[in-house]
Design a protein around this nucleic acid. Structure first.
Lengths: 154, 154
DNA sequence: CATGAAAGGTTCATGTTGTCAACTTTTCAG
DNA sequence: CTGAAAAGTTGACAACATGAACCTTTCATG
């Protein structure tokens, strides 16, 4: 299945693909910057904002947070420590398995996260360049790219 | 897929846009992870790889690197220090303005950067889902999104 | 049931990234 | 010539990230 369904001999390294990869890199950098700025405007770091965003759907064990963000559990300990110290998050032991600590967003935490998300949607300058139809096309392409790969958030 | 709310007074927050933003966020996270992994496989950090990538087109002053990456110049000092210590990069004073230090990739540095770039092109699983035509469409959309915004690399 | 392996979190040591303020050197305007 | 401004560096400090060692809880197996 690794063998691509296209006809080219080296479909992964043709002109178009190279340029798309570069464009992607730029877009990724741009989004990353905007995300950091939006978080900083609410005196959150990027990592803290990411963790908080994960908790929108409900409490989550430390380990699962680490897996979702692809980092070591010990790293999450520190980030949650800081979020907890500022009242954005609580830690409580799981009833079923007392080894597990469930991290849950507080009122304040949820509010901050929702606010940040809102601000992001409006800050998306790049998208402003595209019309409705184009966004639809883009959406479909992105969907195709993401199904099959790891899709943590949604 | 409601089609009636397209008279958007708030074109930034319709259904499609919201979904595109979320998809983008996932794609950004995915690319970011892959980039870090690819860099780590060559014992480079993400930041070091980014600086090295910037030098592909030729030497660049410290300040310009900082501006392109949207961070403080003092931060670049440290990153370049480590790259220099490992022989990936050299610092030399600019002839015209001796305040300026031009950072240039060495043979080794260029090779590492090129290698990483190559590996990225092949590691791009998401792109594998798209055919040639679709990649072209995607490229055009990305181009549109990036022109007008800050376009550091290209 | 007892015991040891395994899993979930934390702690500690260490290194990298990032900011900010103070400083040196060089350039340039007056 | 003198002072302001620009380019880089340094030092102090916080956050992030990893890996190893450790504690507690769970669970499989004898």
């Amino acid at each position: 299945m690794d063998t691509q369904s296209t006809l080219a001999a080296t479909p992964q390294s043709d002109e178009i693909t190279l340029e798309v990869v570069d464009l992607m890199a730029n877009l990724v950098a741009l989004f990353h910057r905007e995300y950091e700025e939006a978080a900083a405007a609410r005196s959150l770091t990027g990592a803290q904002a990411k963790v908080l965003a994960l908790l929108r759907r409900g409490p989550m064990p430390m380990r699962q947070i680490a897996q979702t963000l692809s980092c070591e559990p010990s790293n999450i300990t520190g980030i949650v420590d800081r979020l907890e110290a500022r009242g954005f998050v609580t830690r409580e032991a799981d009833r079923q398995d007392r080894r597990v600590k469930l991290v849950a967003a507080t009122e304040t935490g949820s509010a901050a996260s929702a606010e940040l998300r809102e601000s992001l949607n409006f800050a998306r300058e790049p998208l402003a360049a595209l019309g409705h139809e184009e966004r639809t096309v883009l959406r479909d392409l992105l969907r195709r790219m993401l199904t099959g790969a790891a899709t943590p958030g949604a």
